[in-house]
Design a protein around this nucleic acid. Structure first.
Lengths: 316, 316
DNA sequence: CGATCTTACGGGATTCGTAAACATA
DNA sequence: TATGTTTACGAATCCCGTAAGATCG
């Protein structure tokens, strides 16, 4: 007792539509005898004669006609469902849900989205802004496909991949003595009033760690919650600020100057955060590929030799 | 590029439902590795990962979940459509549309319908009454599946099969001299006033032919259109009537008697009329089989060695 | 006689099950 | 370590195409 096959039913519908085995065989790229066998099997498993054949024409039985009428829309809908799935693979359709930091959301990622819209206009990107901690939580909760933010610790549920290092810049008024330099060192920061982001931010974490590595104490003259506030403070002469290059990028700062911090280079790590054991949609993969293209195009972000994630079960 | 298979999609849905390859394999009566292959092929042809597997559980991807949601009702509906077709083969469902003569519609065929209702309660029979000529036309026009009536000529569209010979009886008042006999001959009918059905009826045709075969003239004393009229005339003493046994059967005739007509036996042929080259539904076949059973049960209708119709293309 | 469907048969592909390797909790 | 998935491979099955047979107009 062989089960009914999609191929058999498609063959049946085609024969009914054309009223001929030979014509249907041509359309299906099959030999006519093969079609005969298909239909015979279908009739055998159903136990019902579906077509009355003469040498001239094949006309459906009453039961065959009822069957065809019920079957045609079902198979058509099945086709569209399958095509809709394949649209995801071809990037004609898809959605990318991601969580990221405000600084990236306003600078690097819009460029990625723009590039993606050109290559794959059918994709939609939904970007949610959050600070580093919540980015991980949003990923963990499955609210987003993945997150791009400061590094969080890897556990059983989260998998972290380093993406690039975002250089931190020192911001100060044009008239400051540093204006003549091409870069400053970490130690030199101790000699000026420092304006740093608040304690629980990823930037502050990177700054603190860098100083701690040198055994130096850090005492900011002032803390700021938002990038705009910090820029305003610098402009008001309250001190010299530290900001990520991506954040500086978006600010139009005619009266301020920015210098990289060297020796050691001060950066904050930006990583991809994804759920462990979960695969990404083709749309999400395309987004990440485009992101990496963008990182490669602009040399300033040091895309850091991509550490391939451990091979996962079923990967090609 | 292998096409998507029903089997693959059923496997996918089962895995999603159970959240496990092993469980799905058990339910599908398959080995678990076979299931893995099935799903891998499905994912390959669709180009999309549908399930994220760990050693513990298999959870659908977002795309996989959407696919399953769309697929499940489609496949379920397909199942019911297939079952509905198979119901015809199993005689759980079906309709028989037939045309027949009033005399048969009121006597023989109700017994057939009753018998059929016992063996196959799901079948419905729709019986249309007509005289012999129109029976053929109704079959030709496809208004009915088949007809049971007087013999019509076989042409390219109609196919005729003799079913049985319906004996014609002589009807007369109890007090008549024939009352002592067990049968009468054709010649003896010439000696009495005859009451015959109207000229274009199948019965009249049979009577005329029988007399013509013997070279005898026929002059009815009176013609009648309906069976009831003819019986009334006999009862009124207008003459002796000729009626088919099936017609007499239904009349309660306490004051009349009936005798078979021998030497030669006078009968009218009853035949199955069907469209040439068209197969009958299982329900119609069941009806005919039951009809033949009924004919075999009652010996009086001479079911005449069934002349098998010529084998048709594709017959088992 | 020509067009069409059916049957028969050999070659190639597909699919299953068994066994072993691999991964994760 | 135990459970569950993947990979590999031999055997059975299925399916197609070619060729010959049958049937109807």
């Amino acid at each position: 007792m062989t089960p009914v096959t999609l191929r058999q039913m498609r063959a049946f519908l085609t024969i009914v539509r054309l009223g001929s085995f030979t014509g249907a065989a041509r359309q299906l790229h099959l030999t006519q005898p093969a079609l005969t066998v298909q239909l015979r099997q279908l009739e055998q498993t159903l136990g019902v004669r579906l077509l009355d054949r003469t040498t001239r024409t094949a006309t459906p039985t009453r039961i065959g006609a009822e069957f065809a009428r019920a079957l045609a829309p079902l198979l058509a809908e099945l086709e569209t469902v399958l095509e809709r799935v394949q649209d995801h693979a071809a990037l004609r359709t898809g959605r990318v849900d991601l969580a990221t930091l405000p600084s990236l959301a306003s600078t690097v990622l819009p460029a990625v989205i723009a590039r993606l819209r050109v290559s794959s206009p059918g994709l939609r990107v939904r970007m949610r802004e959050a600070v580093t901690g919540p980015v991980g939580e949003m990923v963990r909760a499955g609210l987003v496909d993945f997150g791009i933010g400061g590094s969080v610790e890897e556990d059983g549920e989260l998998e972290v991949q380093h993406l690039f290092d975002d250089p931190l810049l020192l911001i100060f008024p044009r008239g400051h003595a540093f204006a003549a330099r091409r870069s400053v060192t970490l130690r030199q920061l101790l000699e000026v009033p420092l304006l740093l982001p608040e304690a629980n931010s990823g930037i502050r974490h990177a700054v603190d760690q860098a100083f701690a590595a040198l055994g130096l104490p850090v005492e900011p003259a002032q803390e700021a919650v938002s990038t705009g506030t910090l820029v305003g403070m610098v402009r008001a002469g309250l001190g010299l600020g530290v900001l990520p290059s991506t954040a500086v990028e978006m600010q139009v700062i005619p009266d301020l100057r920015a210098l990289p911090i060297d020796d050691p280079p001060l950066t904050r790590p930006i990583a991809l955060v994804r759920r462990a054991g979960r695969s990404l949609s083709p749309a999400a993969e395309a987004f990440l590929a485009t992101l990496r293209e963008c990182l490669a195009l602009r040399g300033d972000l040091r895309p850091a030799a991509r550490p391939r994630r451990p091979a996962r079960r079923g990967d090609p």
